[in-house]
Each structure stands twice: as C-alpha cells, then as structure tokens.
Design a binder for these strands. Sequence first.
DNA 1: GCCAACGTTGGC
DNA 2: GCCAACGTTGGC
Length: 157
Amino acid sequence: MPVTKKYWLMKSEPKTYSIQDLKKSGKDLWDGVRNYQARNFMMKEMQVGDEVLFYHSNATPPGVVGLAYVSKEAQPDPTALDPKSKYYDPTASKQNPRWFCVEVAFKSVFKKTIPIEELRKEKALSKMLLLKKGQRLSVMPVTKEEYMHILKMVNKK
DNA sequence: GCCAACGTTGGC
DNA sequence: GCCAACGTTGGC
C-alpha cells in the first residue's frame, strides 16, 4: 500500500557508527536509541522506503555525510535485552521490549560532508529541526523540501 | 574540555 | 505530581 514517503535525519557519532560502517555492512539495525521521542518516530512513523539523511555528530566537521533508506520496519532493539551490550536496559524484557529500532540500508556517501555550518547559512533550511537551539534528537523528521534542498547542495559541490 | 539545553530519576 | 539532582548530548 503506497503511502507518502517520509524523510528523516539520523545522527550517529562516527566513532561509534559511521556511514562507512553502514556502507560496509549494506544494512544494519539502528539500535541503541534510548530516547522516547526518537523511538516513537521509528516505531510509529517510519516506513520501508523512507529516505534518510545520515548525519555525523561530534565529528569534524559535524554534518550530513550520506544517504540511506529504511529497509525494515521497527522491531524490538536486541541491544536492550543483551546484558553484554552497552545499550543494555535491565527494565526491558522480551514481553515488554521498551526500545525499538528500524533497519536502515546504505544508499550513498557524499564526496564531501555538508557541514552544519553550511546548513545554517541556507535560507531554505532556516526552519529545519536540526538547526533549532537545544535540539538533541538523534532521529528527527525532515520535510521533503529540506531533503531536496540538501541534495541540491550536494550536487553543487 | 566546556557548558547550555535537555531528559530522566527518585525522594518527598 | 513537583522539582532538584544528575546524566547526556553535541556544537563550539
């Protein structure tokens, strides 16, 4: 059932998990998210085929580094149930998994990072959630217009 | 490494 | 259910 495609931005620290890691594995679970708002986006709104901007946080420079897409709908996050994982959550259980994650698949890596500094300069992106003060969500929606605008910036490089 | 801006926890 | 204390995020 074709529903309108949605657009997202997903953050990761390259030290933990980079776009190169995703490229290498082709697809991976977006596990370790421990924020309800971010979880709810994955759980309730993401659909297979949705487009994803891959963002490197705590990087030099921080910015959008490539593209991915949602390849599998949300499922319980296995790291929450694994005592050996650093994302282990003793309050999560099989019956009540608490945390969920989608699977994302690699699409492309940009030749050059689009730094957040450049995003801030764009009038078309002035309302972008990522650029709002105090914005710390690791999974957030992006409008189609914002997504397309960033793609344009990529092609200009 | 700093620190502002959040989110979460837990005592009351 | 308030709110102080604490932990985390993430740009700078």
